[in-house]
Amino acid sequence: MTALIESIVTSLVDHPEDIVVTETEEESKIVYHLSVNPDDVGKVIGKNGRIAKAIRTVVYAAKTNSNKRVYLDIM
């Protein structure tokens, strides 16, 4: 899952080396936290959050092994 988020974002940003995805497991959900280079924030959020929404849609569609809810936190 972390790899999926990384590969989606890598091609969108100018500084792929600064992408950090961390995973935190909570009681009922798994939270993935994505952070990118400050210059690239706009490139993963987009106008009115359009890119962020698209990334989330794709990530949530991916199947996970556990049946916990997946949540993607950006920045």
């Binding site: 989606i8 359009r50 890119i51 698209a54 990334i55 849609t57 794709v58 569609a61 991916a62 199947k63």
Partner: peptide
């Protein structure tokens, strides 16, 4: 079906990316 999603929303999101 997983890639298409409800009313094609996943497909549309991926198409945008």
């Amino acid at each position: 079906a997983l890639l298409i999603g409800k009313r094609g929303q996943t497909l549309n999101a991926l198409q945008y990316l």
